[in-house]
């Protein structure tokens, strides 16, 4: 099993922390993982993306040039990463914020109304978890329980209530796909 995934969106959408959560979940499943953030000069409001590899074998290259999955949290990310996705790869799109549709026909496209679902849970902040839940169900790269177990390790300062909302968002995301 090898899953190279790129997550991309605006700064502030929790892209980096979602990536770390995925890597942590893979680690506690004793898989090989690497996480690499794009560390731009902008502190806020710019684009944010990160790549994660989850693999049953040692990860040689931490560079994800041809991702198996792209998680698209905003429209610029769609245009930026559409061409990089492997043929037959999966594109998970946050349809709440992305009106455009990919042009490619050799990929699997799944829309998730992540912001709407997150709002129903009570906070927009968990839209990233909705996408991650959907991702874990679609690819099986990691188990959702491992993601939930990783939550307090990644969100060290989060209050109990917020952890619960993240948990709920992961589960709701799974149900969406």
């Amino acid at each position: 099993m090898y899953q190279g995934v790129i997550m991309s969106g605006f700064g502030g959408q929790g892209i980096v922390s979602a990536g770390i959560l995925l890597a942590n979940a893979g680690m506690i499943e004793d898989k090989y993982v690497t996480f690499f953030p794009a560390y731009g000069a902008e502190m806020r409001g710019g684009t944010a993306n990160c790549s994660v590899v989850v693999s049953s074998e040692e990860v040689s290259s931490p560079v994800v040039a041809r991702p198996d999955t792209v998680i698209v949290m905003n429209e610029p990310s769609l245009h930026r990463f559409e061409s990089q996705l492997k043929p037959g790869g999966l594109m998970l799109i946050n349809s709440s914020l992305v009106a455009a549709k990919p042009k490619r026909e050799d990929i699997e496209i799944v829309f998730v109304d992540a912001n709407t679902i997150a709002e129903k849970i009570g906070t927009l902040k968990v839209a990233n978890m909705v996408m991650l839940g959907a991702y874990s169900k679609k690819t099986g790269a990691v188990n959702v329980d491992s993601l939930i177990k990783s939550l307090p390790k990644v969100y060290k300062k989060a209050k109990e209530d917020m952890l619960k909302k993240n948990q709920e968002a992961l589960r709701k995301g799974m149900e969406e796909v």
């Binding site: 890597a23 690497t34 690499f36 560079v63």
Partner: peptide
């Protein structure tokens, strides 16, 4: 290189 500084691994 910066990638080794920025990347996360177990």
């Amino acid at each position: 290189d910066g990638l080794l500084g920025q990347m996360m691994e177990p």
